[in-house]
Design a protein around this nucleic acid. Structure first.
Length: 570
RNA sequence: GCCCCCGUAGCUCAGCGGAUAGAGCACCGGCCUCCGGAGCCGGGUGCGCAGGUUCGAGUCCUGCCGGGGGCACCA
């Protein structure tokens, strides 16, 4: 069954089409009614009639009485007020619908590239957005029935690995593994870097080591693999701590494309796209101009014969379309990479690796800022580890939890604190338009007052408390009565769930889902204030329990799609 | 110099070309005989500036101003 909105739009489209073929009803939620169709205003001119006349003609042929009543308002809006019977009937259907009205679509194969930390480097706040947004998009697509292929494009190749491997040898393998396995990746990296900067012999060894790594020397590859394995094991711990669904199996790092780079180059050459410029092998996609006003190259092979990341990205596109059969590809990467991806996509199209029917999109996002509105750093000016961020939030949540619920055990308190902490951090990240920078403010995001993750968790837990008190797990499947304005308003909100999910996926903007959930939670709060549930007379009580259940399930389902848990009690 | 993103209330942010531009926080008032007060209700002379397109612009276009970012071999 289609959503309420879709059902109304379908009826209106037919009527508009009869008046003017192909006309869009422009149906929107309204403050003056449940919905409003604005299409008549735009048609007035082309039809040479007044907007109200056009609206009247639409209404004359409109078959919608079983769903809603309509009236012309203002200059020519068609206000739509949905019938209580229609709403009630839809709510009954949702009570037995685990997906709350969201239909599965025919599965698309969707590659989502996100997180992408670097081997032998700490995961820091710079990886937060990619990881959290990508995880949510993956959950959303899976929910719709898509086949999601997560790709964690980790930085596991390049010149730094010479010094990292030499440092590993200096430490001794066992010692190095021990050091890396406790997650102290940064000090490992820093120590290697320090030696590289200070010690000429070490520098020479490092350079030689890069060469043997690239030439496939077996022993060097084995040592490199130790670094990769240890790092990936650590990343997995971070993902688990964050409750992110990425696993080691999703790791397909830069090195995975090493064997494809030559053939990428040859393909480009065969298609006559390759140009040598200043010793480098380049493609000049049209429309890109550099600082000097000259056409800007995408450098596929550097003048020293090494491959740059453009080559890897091109190989990845070719692989994702050609071998994985992707219908859609998303790159959840910060907005500074915008131009790079425009060029890569452009070249991939030119090369024929990216057919026009494959949707390929850079899901860009802004930076996480500190209170000073500059890039978020610790007091000492260092980047903040993701784990430290989570620990701080957990500590704050733990204080709140133990203060409010001293009766629960340490274990439960800890588990709850982690759920709340993750909700705080993730919701704060997901709830603003991803293109904007946002200010990281732990106190604000952990608060259960306002538009926060913990508030939504609380709203959910509060409803679940009703059911515990009533001694039932679920509401009886009665037909909800919608007599009170707040009942009706809540119902209308609940029926918008499929549209909220659709809009979120279509735009890859999780903040739309956040706004929707907060709105539903607020509608519920108003309803709950005005309408007694358990103390209501028989009949009304069951009806209101049904509304409460649908609200709780909507909140829980929505939070799950954001990667946020919805505890039964808080 | 060119290109991209952002600029909405004191602060943090929504706003899919449509009616008097919304929410949260903070602040000031109310609401505890009532199911979780981590709540609810009420309180607001704000779309950076100037043009343009349109019946209608916070939204689209152009030019400025301010902030951030990118622009050849680091990814």
């Amino acid at each position: 069954m289609s959503s309420l909105y879709a059902a109304l739009e379908e009826r209106l489209s037919r009527a508009f089409d009869a008046v003017s073929p192909g006309a869009d009803p422009v149906l929107r939620p309204s403050e003056h009614a449940d919905f409003q169709a604005n299409g008549a205003l735009g048609l007035a001119k082309v039809l040479g009639q007044s907007p109200r006349e056009v609206a009247q003609r639409v209404i004359d042929v409109l078959d919608i009485a079983d769903l809603a009543r309509v009236e012309i308002a203002g200059p020519g809006f068609i206000n739509v007020v949905v019938s209580v019977d229609e709403m009630s009937q839809r709510l009954v259907d949702l009570l037995s619908n685990e997906r709350l009205g969201v239909e599965r679509r025919s599965a698309r194969r969707v590659v989502i590239d996100y997180s992408a930390p670097n081997v032998a480097k700490e995961m820091h706040v710079g990886h937060l957005r990619s990881t959290v947004i990508g995880d949510s998009l993956a959950r959303l697509h899976r929910f719709l029935g898509d086949e999601v292929i997560a790709r964690n494009h980790v930085g596991d190749w390049g010149t730094p690995f010479g010094m990292l491997i030499e440092h590993l040898l200096d430490l001794g393998e066992a010692e190095a593994v021990a050091s890396l396995s406790v997650g102290d990746l940064d000090s490992f990296y820093r120590a290697a870097r320090a030696k590289f900067d200070a010690d000429e012999t070490f520098r020479e060894r490092s350079r030689a080591r890069v060469v043997s790594l690239q030439s496939g020397d077996e022993e060097t590859r084995r040592l490199w693999q130790i670094l990769v394995d240890q790092s990936v094991a650590y990343f997995s711990e971070v993902y688990e701590a964050l409750d992110v669904e990425l696993t080691a199996a999703d790791v397909v790092g830069e090195s995975a494309y090493n064997d494809d780079l030559e053939s990428v180059l040859h393909d480009l050459a065969a298609k006559d796209l390759l140009v040598e410029s200043e010793g480098a092998q380049c493609v000049f996609p049209p429309g890109f101009v550099g600082r000097d006003g000259e056409p800007q190259p995408l450098i596929v092979r550097k003048s020293d014969d090494g491959f740059g990341y453009a080559a890897t990205d091109l190989a990845a596109v070719r692989d994702r379309v050609g071998r994985l059969g992707a219908d859609e590809i998303y790159y959840v990467v910060g907005s500074p990479q915008s131009q790079h991806f425009q060029m890569v996509f452009s070249v991939a199209r030119l090369a024929g690796w990216l057919p026009e029917w494959v949707h390929c999109e850079h899901v860009a996002f802004g930076s996480v800022l500190g209170p000073d509105r500059k890039m978020f750093k610790s007091r000492t000016g260092e980047t903040v580890k993701l784990i430290a961020l989570l620990d701080d939030a957990t500590e704050a949540a733990r204080r709140e939890v133990t203060a409010r619920r001293p009766e629960i055990g340490v274990e439960e308190a800890e588990s709850l604190a982690r759920d709340v902490a993750r909700a705080a951090i993730k919701y704060a990240d997901l709830s603003t338009d991803r293109l904007r920078d946002y200010v990281f403010d732990l106190d604000r995001m952990i608060s259960a007052e306002g538009d926060t993750g913990p508030y939504l968790q609380y709203a959910h837990a509060r409803i679940r408390a009703l059911f515990r008190r009533a001694g039932i797990e679920r509401a009886p499947h009665v037909t909800p009565l919608l007599h009170e304005p707040s009942e009706r308003a809540l119902a209308l909100g609940l029926l918008g769930w499929p549209d909220a999910v659709e809009a979120t996926v279509r735009t890859s903007q999780p903040h739309r889902l956040c706004s929707y959930l907060f709105d539903v939670a607020q509608r519920f709060s108003t309803f709950y204030e005005e309408c007694p549930v358990l103390n209501a007379p028989e009949g009304v009580r069951e009806s209101r329990l049904a509304l409460a259940e649908l609200t709780a399930r909507t909140l829980a389902q929505g939070l799950a799609l954001l990667g946020i848990a919805a505890p039964e009690q808080m």
